[in-house]
């Protein structure tokens, strides 16, 4: 086995070159390159993490915006409902007021008309009485030849109409 048979002759050379080569690997690759590669990996991991966090934040912001939008919509809807109710109430009030005013006017007109009617009726009644009294005077004159004065005829007509 040359590893054992040659060991006395070759150990110094092997150790010497191994230390040089391994030293170069340790300094150049282990200490030189490895940390840079690790830093790259770490930077990438951090970038991914921060990107994810940013995306999460953006999502939260979007949710917030949506919530605000919904709230504003809700608010506007409530406001419009309120305005509608108010307008409805106001319109009802106005209508009632108008109806009442028109009612009052109509009542006044009716009163005037009724008064006129009553006047006309009274007048008509009066005329009927005078016409009846004249007719009675004439009938009495024609029938009996007597002359009845106007006042007596009126009295007789009134009592006959009242009966």
């Amino acid at each position: 086995m040359p590893q054992i048979a040659q060991i006395a002759a070759t150990y110094a050379s092997q150790i010497f070159w191994l230390l040089i080569i391994f030293g170069l690997i340790y300094v150049g690759i282990g200490k030189g390159m490895l940390p840079k590669i690790e830093a790259t990996v770490e930077a990438r991991d951090q970038k991914i993490a921060s990107d994810l966090a940013a995306a999460e934040a953006a999502r939260a912001k979007a949710d917030e915006t949506e919530a605000a939008y919904r709230a504003s919509i809700e608010e506007a809807r409530n406001a419009s409902l309120k305005a509608k109710a108010e307008a409805k109430a106001a319109a009802t009030l106005e209508a009632e007021k108008k109806v009442r005013a028109v009612d009052a006017e109509l009542a006044a007109k009716m009163a005037v008309a009724e008064a006129a009617l009553k006047g006309a009726q009274a007048r008509a009644l009066g005329e009927i009485e005078s016409v009846a009294a004249e007719a009675a005077q004439e009938i009495v004159t024609k029938v009996s030849g007597l002359t009845v004065d106007k006042a007596a005829a009126d009295r007789a007509v009134k009592s006959a109409l009242a009966a």
Partner: peptide
């Protein structure tokens, strides 16, 4: 102590070169 450059040393150097080349691709 004799420190001749042997085939063992040569293959160590080749190992170093191969490793260095490999790592260079990651740099």
């Amino acid at each position: 102590h004799n420190i001749a450059f042997t085939n063992s040393a040569l293959w160590m150097v080749i190992t170093l070169a191969a490793l260095w080349l490999f790592m260079l691709g990651g740099m």
